[in-house]
Nucleic acid binder design. Sequence first.
DNA 1: AATCACAATCTAATCGATTAAATTTCATAT
DNA 2: ATATGAAATTTAATCGATTAGATTGTGATT
Lengths: 308, 308
Amino acid sequence: MIAKTNYQPNQIAKSLRTKRTNIIGVLAEDILAFPTARIINGISEYMEHTDYQILLLNLRMLDSLLNQYNQIIHQKDKIRQALSFLIFGTKVDAVIYIGMFDRDISGVIENMNKPIIVAYSTSSDDHVCSVTYENEAVSAESARHLIDCGHRRIAVITGLADTAPAQKRLHGINTAFKEAGLVLDNALVKHGDWERASGYSCMKELLEHKPTAVLAMNDFMAIGAMEAIKDAKLRVPEDVSVMGFDNREVSDFVFPKLTTVEINLKAIGFAAAQAAAEKLSDDGQYANESSVIIPSRLILRDTVAQIL
Amino acid sequence: MIAKTNYQPNQIAKSLRTKRTNIIGVLAEDILAFPTARIINGISEYMEHTDYQILLLNLRMLDSLLNQYNQIIHQKDKIRQALSFLIFGTKVDAVIYIGMFDRDISGVIENMNKPIIVAYSTSSDDHVCSVTYENEAVSAESARHLIDCGHRRIAVITGLADTAPAQKRLHGINTAFKEAGLVLDNALVKHGDWERASGYSCMKELLEHKPTAVLAMNDFMAIGAMEAIKDAKLRVPEDVSVMGFDNREVSDFVFPKLTTVEINLKAIGFAAAQAAAEKLSDDGQYANESSVIIPSRLILRDTVAQIL
DNA sequence: AATCACAATCTAATCGATTAAATTTCATAT
DNA sequence: ATATGAAATTTAATCGATTAGATTGTGATT
C-alpha cells in the first residue's frame, strides 16, 4: 500500500528557476465596463484546461462618476504604469489588455519583452496582436434588415464620432445603403455619446425629419430613443422601428424588446487566451501574428416592423 | 547626475525567500453572477493603495445554461479542488471566496493554513470570517414602506425557499408585519426560483387573492410579476405596487422604474480585501475575527403607490 | 572478458532576492 | 595608546525547485 503523499511542488521555486509563472496578466480598463466580465469568463473557460492562471489588474477607469467615456481615452499614464509593471515584472508570462477604445499600446511601452494581446479594442499600431469583434459587416446587416423591411428614411444615432467603433459601424451602414441605391441623409445622422440621455435628445431632434426607423449604435442610446419616440406619442415599432447594438441585458427587458446586435464576448476572451498561450508555447509555429475578428450577429426582437 | 537605474527586484525570488507573494486569491463561483464583478471592483479599489494583487479563479458555475441555481448549491467538488489549490499552493497569501449561497467552507478543506474570507455569502460554520450584506433589516424596511403607504394585502414572492437569503428576507418581512400588527397570509406567499418566469407565474396565482402590493425577493421576479400584472389588465403601481431586491441595472429601464433594494457590493469587496490584508499584517491586533455586515438601502422609484 | 555506447542515477550549481552571521570600521572611554 | 562596544559593511546560507554535468550501471558487441 503506497502512502498517498499529497506533495505539491513549490510553484514559486519552480518559477524562479524556469522564469515562467504560468500566470497571464489580465489588464482591464474597467471590470464594470459591460464587455469585461464576459471576456474574462471566456479567458477562464480557455484556461480551465491549461495550467495558466489569471492575475487581474483592474484600472477602474469608469468607476468614478466623473469619468465619462471621452475622458477615458486620455488616461495613458495609468495604463503605462500598470502595463510596465506587468511587462517588466516577473509575475506574469504574457498580458491580455481589455480595452474599451482603440489605443496605441506598443507606443505606451518601449521594448516589450512579453507577448501582449489586446482584446475587444485594437491597438492602433498593427503589429500588436488583437482579438476584436466584427463591426462593419453586422452594421451593414442591421441596415439591410431595415431596408428589407421597407424602410427608406432611416436615421442614425452614432457614438462618440471620433471612436473607431462608431466609425466602423457608420461605414457598414453606408455600405448597405449604397448597395440598396440609397444615400445616407446627413440630416438623419446625429452624434450621441453612448449614453441613454444622448439617445433621447438625438431622437427628439431626428423626429422632426420623420424617420421611419433609427439605428442606434448601442442599446442605451436606442432605449433613450425609444423613450423619445414614446414621449412624442408615437409607437415602437409601428411608427418608428429601432435597432440597438451590444445586446445588453436590458434589451430583453424593455418594452417592446429591443432588436440589437450581439457581440460574442466570451469568444473574444477565449481566443485572446488561446493566442496568448500559443505565443508562449515552445513551438510557436501555429502562433498567428495576425489579429482575429470574432463575428457578431443580429438578435431579432420586437422593435422593428415591416413597412407597407 | 545619478543614472536612473530602473531596477525592478525579482518578485519571484523575493517570494521564495519570504514565503509571501502579496497575491490574494479571489475564488468566484461565477464572474457573470451579478454581484461578482462589482465585488471584485471593490477589492481592487482597496488594493490600489497596497501592493497586493488579485489572482482570479472563476469557477463558471452559472455559465452553462444547464446550471440552475438549485444545482449550483451542490457543486462541492469543484470548490474543494480550487480552494485546496489556492490554500495548499504557494501562489497566494490569502483567499477571498465570492459565493452565491451559504456553504460550509471550512468543512470543504481540512487544516487551512491561510486566511480565508467569504464575501457576499457566508460560511455556515461561523468561525470562518465573512463579509456579507444586510438582508433582514432592509427587508423589514421594504415591508414597512408598503405598510406606510397604506397597503395591507401584501403578497410575497420568495426565492428558493431553502436558501439563506430567502429565509432572512422573509424573516425581516415578518418582523415588519408583526410590528404593524399584521399577519402574513400564507396564501399570499409564493415560492419562486429567482428567475423572471417564476415571478410571472407566482404573480398570476397571487392575483386571484387580490393583493394591493407584492414584495419580490429579487428584481427579475419583480419584473416577471409586473408583466403578469400588466397581462391581467391591471396597472403598476395604481392597482398593484411592486418592490424588488438587488437594484439590477434593468430596474432603472423597465416601465415603470422599479422600486428596489440596493446591496453595496463595492463595499463588500472593499471590506473583504481589507479583512484579508489585516489578517496578513504583522500586527494582526486589529484583525477582527467577527464577520462584517454591509448595510443595504431602499431605492425608491416608481412602482409603489400610496393607497387611499 | 574487455570495450564501448547508452541509459539511469546522483551531485551540485543555479535562479535572485532576503537575512543571519561574520567582519570591518569607527568612536569613545580607560 | 589600547581595549571595548556599537555601527556599518561584507559574506554566506537559505528558500525549493530545475537542470546540466558527473558518476554509475546495464547490455551488447567483438
